[in-house]
């Protein structure tokens, strides 16, 4: 199979199904109703992998959309992050929800536990901006109702 070319291989599902895999390693062709009936596939299989999302980021970049590419790059990092962590980080980033230390702690966890350095950097960038604009909480989450 030829190497991935972000300028010509979109849509991946139609043009490069050979490159697309589920998190459990199945190909698109295996995701049929028969497999669903027998329980061979489930909702956990019907998701994009980090690799697929990185390819989509490359496609966006090749199409001249650097910010969309950045966002899809963060999405690639988040692909394997559990739902509850994602919801917690979102809440932590809302205005006046977190102290500077709490945001730093999230950045650490994202970077080291979830291999999401891009998202971690983004959280740190938010922490700096929030500090400047008074959008941090002054009491740790545990001390608030």
């Amino acid at each position: 199979m030829p190497a991935f070319d972000p300028r010509t291989d979109y849509p991946l599902g139609a043009r490069r199904p050979d490159l697309v895999r589920t998190p459990s390693g199945l190909s698109l062709g295996e995701l049929d109703l028969a497999a669903l009936r027998t329980g061979r596939i489930g909702s956990a299989d019907l998701r994009a992998t980090g690799e697929t999302l990185r390819r989509q980021a490359e496609i966006a970049a090749a199409a001249g959309r650097p910010q969309l590419a950045d966002s899809l790059g963060r999405a690639a990092e988040l692909a394997s992050v559990p739902d509850d962590v994602i919801l917690a980080v979102y809440t932590a980033l809302r205005p006046r929800r977190s102290t500077a230390d709490e945001l730093d702690a999230w950045a650490e966890r994202l970077e080291h536990e979830h291999a999401a350095p891009g998202v971690a950097a983004f959280v740190r960038e938010a922490r700096v901006a929030y500090a400047e604009r008074g959008l941090l909480s002054h009491a740790p989450t545990g001390a608030r109702r």
Partner: peptide
């Protein structure tokens, strides 16, 4: 199931994506 399969390839994340006849993703790309 086809809609769930779209997520696996993630083609609908590109700009202005919609799904045409035969599950063809049409976007600004």
């Amino acid at each position: 199931l086809g809609l769930q399969r779209l997520r696996v390839a993630a083609d609908t994340l590109q700009t202005a994506a919609i799904v045409g006849p035969g599950w063809a993703v049409e976007s600004a790309v």
